[in-house]
Amino acid sequence: MGCFQSKARRQYPGHEDLVLLASQTAFSISEVEALFELFKSISSSVIDDGLINKEEFQLALFKSGKKENLFANRIFALFDVKQKGVIDFGDFVRALNVFHPNAPHEDKVGFSFKLYDLDGTGFIERKEVKQMLIAILCESEMRLSDETVELILNKTFLETDVNQDGKIDKAEWENFVSRNPSLLKIMTLPYLRDITTTFPSFVFNSEVDDIAT
């Protein structure tokens, strides 16, 4: 007993969609198809409607859909560029493109800035960093006194907030990550280089005759 709408939406992307997505990203058509295999498994884990909702996203990250996580919510919001409350396949491919090892460095810097600019004001404010710090402490079950949290914040802002106006702007962030490149490690997924090998089943549904990666 299925609903018509969910059946209609669960189609494979057509050749034109694949060509378009491949042209907009660092992925080949075959790689976009391999990503669809991943998308399909995530988007059908709770409701098989061809879209990833927040619960499905959390389920894929934590193996539990009930676990609320500030950072997973931020990533979800940045993938969901049109703010529809769900991630469609185009959103998924274009967002993962930023995580490709060959993606431009400035795209990774920009995405990480938006990730930490929780309220989207164009600045990473001290209250936002504090909120994230408290979230990571809860997540890791690490207990720190308020005094220690303030010390970490002081040190962080001393290192990043060059003009000492209490907030980190884009230029300060660029400067900071260029001195601390390890902070951008989360912005690169080496798996994306090898996506057709990870999801070889894409060949059974392929729209292209000549599979080239």
Partner: peptide, 25 residues
Amino acid sequence: RPATMNAFELISTSQGLNLGILFEK
């Protein structure tokens, strides 16, 4: 030791930011 770390170093260790897990079967 955490007091000597930068907040962003700590934040970047969050499981919620580890998208690599999506590719691990």
